[in-house]
Amino acid sequence: MSQNLPDLPDILREVRAFIEAVTPRVEEKDRYHAMCCSYLLAVAERELTRGEAAEREMQQARAALAEVSGMPLASDGELAARLREGRLDAHWDAALESVLRQVVARVRVSKPTHLDPLHQERVS
């Protein structure tokens, strides 16, 4: 068993809970930044626990479009460049679907409650 307990997500959760508890008592000038801090810690927590899954999902979404279009699209940079060149215009629906899948994966890390119910993960 690890001797490094609490683990990193637990540490972040604890720090965030503390910031959230004191935020109402923070001077008004600092309150917005305090809220941003807890928001950022929540992003970090989710990235630790779900970041790899999100990265996998993004790669798979690019790979699906690569297969349909016959173009190598290994990175965001490559995909962005092909889109700008108009070389994916002929695969519009597939491109839109692929980019949406990637963005949904990112939102699930940044702020999952922002997603339409259509894209919210079911909690089992």
Binding site: S75, D76, A80, L83, R84, D89, V99, V103
Partner: peptide
């Protein structure tokens, strides 16, 4: 930064 969503939207705007 590379943002495929921006590039996709720009293609739509151009067309």
């Amino acid at each position: 930064e590379a943002h495929p969503a921006v590039e996709l939207a720009v293609r739509w705007l151009v067309r």
